[in-house]
Design a protein around this nucleic acid. Structure first.
Lengths: 130, 130
DNA sequence: TTTGCTGCAAATCCTTTGCAGAGGT
DNA sequence: ACCTCTGCAAAGGATTTGCAGCAAA
């Protein structure tokens, strides 16, 4: 990925941004591709990927990546929280004695039937702080 | 994936479970493969994937997948929370007027320098409730 | 003996990348 | 004109799957 020194607002980038702001469906890259293709039939999927990356790096859109790329597995079956270090991607458990309170008032308002929540803290681990 | 009607405790499954419970590093499937291979040199990566799936489906281990498989993009750049429906994988925003309180007391205790958190609610969407 | 499980390899899915030409600024 | 961006296609990495033989129960 190139450094965003001199960003150009190309037609493709413009349309991707417009289409993304039109919807609230949190589309995947492929879904964005399908949306944009209606206006720019010759756009390539690679371009969509590159632009989504650039747009989120420059803060114009948000990239939802709750968690890391790899699925990870935990020998502890009980639900608990994690802290992930964005530098080394290490994941550690949140000490269980710590009281993390998530207010579930939202349960009453959303049309969703809330089953639970996933909470992940992002933090620089001791190793990476130096 | 077969339905878990009659699970057998094979040597491979046993060793995967044992190795996973030994560590607290939240390994990826490939890392589990490397761990297990020391004891079962002929095990295949496919078997590791299948067993991690089966073990987490049967509740013996936990699968960390904060979020969905696909990266998703959001036209709203500001940070906000999401609800995801596990049935249809739809993601919607948490209405911003709802007060979600995450207690950050944990900041003082962990050796991590906490930068923030990611919170995702899991819930059945109106469509999937029928 | 039944049938779930394994190793293997090929397939699949999503994403990234190299390249030569096109197009913003 | 400069240099970023594009389309294309191939490569890449993680995960899944088909199959024939193996092994728990």
């Amino acid at each position: 990925m190139q450094k965003n020194v001199n960003l150009r607002m190309t037609r493709q980038r413009q349309v991707i941004l417009e289409e993304l702001c039109k919807v609230d469906t949190h589309p995947s890259a492929d879904e964005v591709y399908e949306m944009v293709r209606k206006r720019l039939p010759r756009i390539s999927l690679g371009t969509v990927y590159r632009n989504l990356e650039i747009l989120s790096a420059s803060g114009k859109i948000q990239r939802l990546e709750l968690g890391c790329n790899l699925k990870r597995f935990d020998g502890i079956a009980e639900n608990h929280y994690h802290i992930r270090c964005p530098k080394c991607d290490r994941v550690v458990d949140v000490p269980p004695d710590l009281n993390v309170v998530v207010n579930h008032d939202l349960k009453n308002a959303a049309a969703f039937k809330i089953l639970g929540h996933k909470l992940e803290f992002i933090g620089i681990c001791p190793n990476c702080q130096t």
